[in-house]
């Protein structure tokens, strides 16, 4: 069942984004930034975890999860060490994705040439 929910949730996020893209002058850059903030808000309200339990990969793959991981890390750090702890914890959950992406992008720039 989780596969069905993964399909529906991830598809729904994409559909909403596509509708915004087609109906407005917003670029994917604008829309993804909005979604990240939205994910962070859902996370701060304690809702995002339910989404992850319900839809698994369907909630972890959209960019909203980036916002969720940032808040999750921040809140965990907040619990352990107040505001300073929050700053320490902020990037802990998303560092795998962020670090790997920067690494592979740099690697790509070495081996690949832009095509036409």
């Amino acid at each position: 069942m989780i596969y069905l929910y993964a399909f529906l949730v991830s598809g729904a996020f994409a559909l909403i984004a596509q509708i915004i893209y087609d109906r407005s002058k917003l670029t994917p850059g604008h829309i993804t930034s909005m979604f990240v903030v939205f994910g962070a808000i859902l996370s701060a309200c304690g809702v995002y975890q339910y989404l992850l339990d319900f839809a698994g990969g369907g909630a972890s793959v959209p960019i909203t999860n980036f916002g969720n991981l940032l808040v999750e890390g921040g809140l965990e750090g907040l619990k352990e060490g107040g505001l300073l702890g929050m700053l320490l914890g902020l990037l802990t959950k998303c560092s795998a994705t962020l670090g790997f992406t920067i690494f592979i992008a740099t690697f790509a720039s070495i081996v690949a040439k832009p095509r036409q």
């Binding site: 596969y3 993964a6 598809g11």
Partner: peptide, 9 residues
């Protein structure tokens, strides 16, 4: 988008 969710899961 849905298929991406399935791939991720």
């Amino acid at each position: 988008g849905g298929l991406m969710g399935i791939l991720a899961q």
